[in-house]
Simulated scan of single mutants.
Amino acid sequence: MRAAALLAENSQFVLSFDTGGTAAGAAAAAATALKQHPALILGPLTAEEVPAVSSTIAGRVPIIAFSNDSVLRTQGTYIFGITAAQVTSAILRYARSRGIKSVAMIDDGSPWSAAAALAAGQAEGELGIRVRMLPVRPGQPLPDAGEAPDAVLLPGSGEAVLSAARGLKATGIQLLATLQGLDHRPEALEVLSGAWIASPDPVAFGTFASEFSARNGGNPGTIAALAYDAAGIANALRNANTLNAAGLLDGKGFHGVTGPVRFRTDGSVARDFAILVARPQGYEPVATSSGA
């Protein structure tokens, strides 16, 4: 993450403090950082660490935290990780624009799935779409889906998504997924062909990944891309002489490799996502949709 940030911001303005991966370590790192009089804090990463940093900073400096747990947001602490609510609302909004009126959502019991299910429930009234939850647990039989829906949403990843995709072939039911379900293996692309997926634009991410690899070696992931975007926001604000809370809340928002974002006063972050259609040869961006 630090290497990615240094691609977007001058190293003389980037100071790193090790949290040790614990709440106590995060609080100590934040206290040390405050002594340097920073204009902006990027991090921490984990849900355990975010409240410790928020309480230590106590609103004195804006915090761009990389957790995807939206419950941790508070005034002055912005949750910059890609959340289940953001991608779920984005894919449902696009699906509704394409005429989808009823969705069955597979809930595998994971925290990500639970957050996605909550977001889907909240989107029903806003979008005029009917969402039926289908809890699926390992070792248990699949529940009765009832009347066939227009689409099935799978917020998870891996073989569960591929298995569902195989089962939906030739049924006429549209498969919906989020970035968790992206799978670039040729055999997976064949199975997922035709699925609609909400995700950061792979073209923009690919450009960043190439630059990162050329400078540092290795292949960066989404977390590194978030660090790159956060540092890029800091760089843009500093160049505009608005590196402060007011600058961060500029309604025009910011563009990055993980997509356009806008910061809100309650600590939430609005994101726009690319809508991808899975093809046997790769993922094709076809539209843009706003998340929660």
Score class of each variant (00 low, 15 high):
Gly121Val: 13
Ala123Glu: 14
Gly128Thr: 07
Ile129Arg: 01
Val131Gln: 12
Val131Tyr: 12
Gln140Glu: 14
Gln140Arg: 14
Leu142Val: 08
Leu142Trp: 11
Ala145Gln: 10
Gly146Lys: 05
Glu147Val: 15
Glu147Trp: 05
Glu147Leu: 14
Asp150Val: 08
Asp150Gln: 09
Val152Lys: 03
Leu154Arg: 02
Gly156Glu: 13
Glu159His: 00
Val161Ile: 14
Val161Arg: 02
Val161Asn: 06
Leu162Gly: 05
Ser163Thr: 10
Ala165His: 03
Arg166Asn: 11
Gly167Phe: 02
Leu168Cys: 05
Lys169Ile: 09
Gly172Lys: 13
Leu176Val: 05
Thr178Tyr: 02
Gln180Cys: 02
Leu182Ser: 00
Asp183Pro: 00
His184Cys: 00
Pro186Ser: 07
Pro186Tyr: 05
Leu189Lys: 12
Val191Arg: 09
Val191Asn: 06
Leu192Cys: 07
Ser193Thr: 12
Gly194Ala: 14
Gly194Arg: 06
Ile197Met: 12
Ile197Lys: 07
Ile197His: 01
Ile197Gln: 06
Ala198Asp: 00
Asp201Ser: 04
Val203Arg: 11
Ser210Gly: 10
Ser210Gln: 15
Glu211His: 10
Phe212Lys: 05
Ser213Asn: 15
Ala214Gly: 07
Ala214His: 11
Arg215Asn: 07
Arg215Thr: 13
Asn216Met: 09
Asn216Val: 09
Gly217Ser: 11
Gly218Glu: 03
Pro220Phe: 08
Ile223Phe: 11
Ala225Ser: 12
Tyr228Glu: 09
Tyr228Leu: 08
